[in-house]
């Protein structure tokens, strides 16, 4: 049975936000903007608009987000009402950061430091190697962590390194409280734990929404993690706002038929 859709995801996000009496963050670990035809045709605009409407707080740059090149993603980043983060994707010549490396957010009185990190394979996206480099993920996270020390209660890394890269990062940078990962496309109902760092990710293709509830204790440590896989099946109603948004893009970009041409 087909799962997923941004309209179903929006229904769940809105419901959880409206019911919650505690801080709620909505985050994405990358490989998000491109793949399906409508996203490619609109150069990622439909996804950014959908994420704006769903109230995403931050997203990391993954390899596939660069499928249309650096310039297109920079244009989408300007339209996004959430930061698109990468602390290690830099220009090939000047070696300056191309995207915002981190974000500092406050929700319900809790301060969150959120760093984005991109996998080295990002250079394989068309035209990217000519204009960009990917710095070492661990060294880059450490560097930017130093910049924001004392400005957060909870440190989250949005990573598109894959699970093994995430585990190595957690071992090398134990200050990280939580890694929301991607690339390995694992469906994790409970987080991996490396030292005191929780690591999780949630499948692929938008078929599920991940939920992780944790307690920030008086000593500033996260504990009592409770993970949940929210399947976005046909039983989840479609949010009218998001459905209208997607329909408007479908009118703008008619989908090719799958019937063979004669």
């Amino acid at each position: 049975m087909p799962k997923g859709s941004v309209a179903r995801r929006a229904t769940k996000i809105k419901a959880i936000r409206s019911e919650a009496q505690n801080p709620v963050l909505v985050l994405d670990a990358g490989d998000t903007l491109f793949g399906q035809m409508l996203a490619l045709q609109s150069e990622g605009r439909v996804i950014v608009e959908a994420m704006n409407a769903m109230g995403y707080d931050a997203m990391a740059v993954g390899q596939m987000d660069l499928a249309k090149g650096v310039e297109v993603l920079l244009a989408r980043a300007k339209e996004a009402r959430f930061p698109i983060l990468s602390c290690n994707l830099v220009g090939a010549q000047e070696q300056k950061l191309i995207f915002q490396p981190y974000a500092l957010l406050e929700r319900g009185g809790v301060r969150f430091g959120i760093i984005g990190v991109t996998e080295p394979e990002a250079l394989e996206s068309p035209g990217v190697r000519e204009v960009a480099q990917v710095f070492d993920p661990v060294a880059s996270v450490k560097k930017h962590l130093d910049e924001i020390k004392g400005q957060y209660d909870v440190l989250i890394v949005l990573s598109h390194l894959g699970v093994e890269g995430d585990r190595a990062l957690a071992q090398a940078v134990p200050e990280i409280d939580l890694i929301i990962g991607g690339k390995s496309r694992r469906l994790m109902s409970a987080p991996d734990i490396v030292g005191s760092t929780f690591i999780t990710q949630m499948g692929y293709d938008g078929e599920w929404l991940g939920r992780l509830d944790v307690t920030l204790d008086a000593q500033g440590q996260l504990r009592d993690p409770q993970g949940m896989v929210i399947e976005l099946g046909p039983d989840v109603a479609e949010d009218a706002e998001l459905k209208a948004l997607v329909d408007s893009y479908k009118e703008q970009f008619p989908q090719p038929t799958t019937e063979p041409t004669k």
Binding site: G4, S5, V24, L27, A29, V46, I47, L232
Partner: peptide
């Protein structure tokens, strides 16, 4: 606060959704 003290936080998260706006699978 949770029963044993501290602040309960909720993180909703996605990854690798690859531009999917419609149901898939």
């Amino acid at each position: 606060s949770s029963s044993s003290g501290g602040v309960r936080l909720t993180v909703l998260h996605t990854n690798d959704s690859r531009g999917y706006v419609d149901p898939c699978g």
